[in-house]
Design a protein around this nucleic acid. Structure first.
Length: 445
DNA sequence: TCTGGGGTCCTAGGACCC
DNA sequence: TCTGGGGTCCTAGGACCC
């Protein structure tokens, strides 16, 4: 994270003097709207919005649209008349375009420092520790990105990620700053923090803000001055970190390497309500295969698949229902057909006829590196050279006998193979074997 | 009629083991 | 049969982010 390498052999507890950490947050202003504008110059200085997947709600607005008071996330049908009256241009979203533009911005940013974390499609954290004049550097970054990609960015600099976020917000809110703001640091931050509500601090959402308010903590400055230990006891370690970060103590490090993804989700709302099982089944199969594609593209394999299904939480008059079912694969898989099959079974177990459904999704979980996917305990008997199905059956029978005799999942296979709540709910008693090497050892013992 | 589609991390609590 | 502490692993649910 720091650009100063630790010398080898130094005890980890010993602190070394480093220049104050400087983190810059660079993000694209109104990212989706700015991308669309790039390819349609007629939109320049006109109010415009970009819509979500089914053109359901507003997910991006140009400055001009914001000035008209159009809210983020609002359902289009609620504001359709007002959009028309104010001549707001309306665009469907184009994620392929945004992904491509995002990559271009990142490649420009990488010329400024290799210590960079791509945080989201339109935001990156840059480590500028040790740079003499971060403000001038920020302007350089901004000018270069604009010139090379056509996209306007804002740059906020602070001692921690949380402070960089706040600085970025300042840069956006005050046009006079020219898109760049550097937090002065320490006590000099206080005047500014006093004018920011806790809910606008990174990591403090609506619920936490409400709970903090009951304690009299209303502004970012109040939060900075709160006792970290008290906050930890009352809330959690997450909020405690935010307090420390506001004080300039880094708790969230810059992650230059992208870690392995932990879950993969594909979900969509239906354009209109759906009652037909076949329709939902087709959607689930499509999502399962898309999820499998994403999985393989990253060289991962999944151990578990979950299907969720729900009616609309917005239909106050109709019966509400939401449920999910999971399937744990006998061994980690990347196979589309296997996933579609599992997804279909899961769906069947939670589908209730007669309801008007709004949304379904497929989630892949317990991911691991496909190259090191755990071999099935039985796979060497099941297939390949030396296959011995009889041996497999014998092993399974042994397990069944042990489990029956001891009245529980003695050797831990039977129960761990199926997610319990689902198995119970379905009355599915058939054992499903997870076959890890540690289990094999227990059997042999 | 119509309300996004993804992700992350933390905590509490249950099952189980010795 | 009861009691009990210390530990791991797993899951559900809640909070947040973009």
């Amino acid at each position: 994270m720091s650009s100063i390498p630790l010398s080898e052999g130094r005890p980890p507890t010993q602190r070394i003097a480093t220049p104050a950490q400087r983190i810059a947050l660079v993000d694209v202003n109104n990212f989706y709207a700015s991308c669309e504008r790039l390819f349609d110059p007629r939109l320049e200085s006109r109010p415009m919005v970009v819509l979500s997947n089914n053109d359901g709600c507003i997910i991006a607005r140009s400055d001009e649209a914001k000035a008209l008071g159009i809210a983020m996330g609002v359902a289009v049908h609620k504001v359709r008349d007002s959009l028309k009256r104010q001549k707001v241009q309306i665009y469907s979203s184009n994620y392929a375009l945004y992904g491509d533009m995002s990559a271009r911005v990142v490649s420009v940013l990488k010329r400024f420092t290799p210590y960079l974390e791509v945080y989201s499609i339109d935001e990156s954290f840059l480590d500028l520790s040790g740079f003499a004049d971060p403000e001038a550097y920020g302007h350089d970054i901004r000018d270069t990105v604009l010139r090379w990609t056509g996209l306007p960015v804002s740059v906020g600099v602070g001692a921690t990620k949380t402070l960089a976020k706040i600085a970025n917000r300042m840069a956006k809110k005050n046009p006079a700053l020219g898109g760049v703001f550097v937090m002065p640091g320490d006590d000099a931050d206080d005047e500014l923090l006093g004018r920011i509500e806790t809910g606008d601090v990174w990591g403090i959402g609506r619920r936490l803000a409400a709970r903090l308010e009951t304690l009299g903590i209303v502004t970012a400055l109040d939060l900075k001055r709160a006792d970290p230990k008290f906050i930890r006891a009352r809330f959690s370690v997450v909020v405690e970190r935010t307090v420390l970060e506001l004080r300039g103590t880094p708790c969230l490090s810059l992650e230059a390497a992208t870690p392995q993804q932990k879950g993969i989700m594909v979900s969509r709302g239906f354009g209109k309500r759906v009652r037909d099982f076949g329709h939902i089944e087709a959607a689930v199969a499509t999502y399962a295969s898309r999820a499998a594609e994403k999985l393989r593209r990253q060289g991962l394999a999944a151990n578990k698949l979950t299907v969720s299904l729900r009616t609309s939480p917005f239909d106050a008059a109709r019966e509400r229902y939401a449920n999910a079912a999971s399937f744990v694969f006998p061994e980690a898989t990347t196979d589309t057909a296997e996933m579609i099959g599992a997804a279909g079974r899961c769906l069947k177990s939670i589908f209730k006829p007669g309801l008007a459904y709004q949304k379904t999704g497929v989630f892949l979980d317990a991911l691991e590196d496909a190259g090191h996917a755990q071999r099935s305990l039985f796979s060497r008997f099941d297939s390949g050279p030396g296959a011995d199905p009889a041996r497999t059956r014998a092993l399974m029978q042994t397990m069944d006998r042990l489990n029956a005799a001891w009245g529980r999942d003695t050797v831990r296979f039977a129960a761990t193979g199926l997610q319990r709540p689902w198995a119970m709910k379905q009355g599915n008693k058939s054992p499903c074997y997870t076959t890890r090497w540690r289990d094999l050892k227990q059997v042999q013992a």
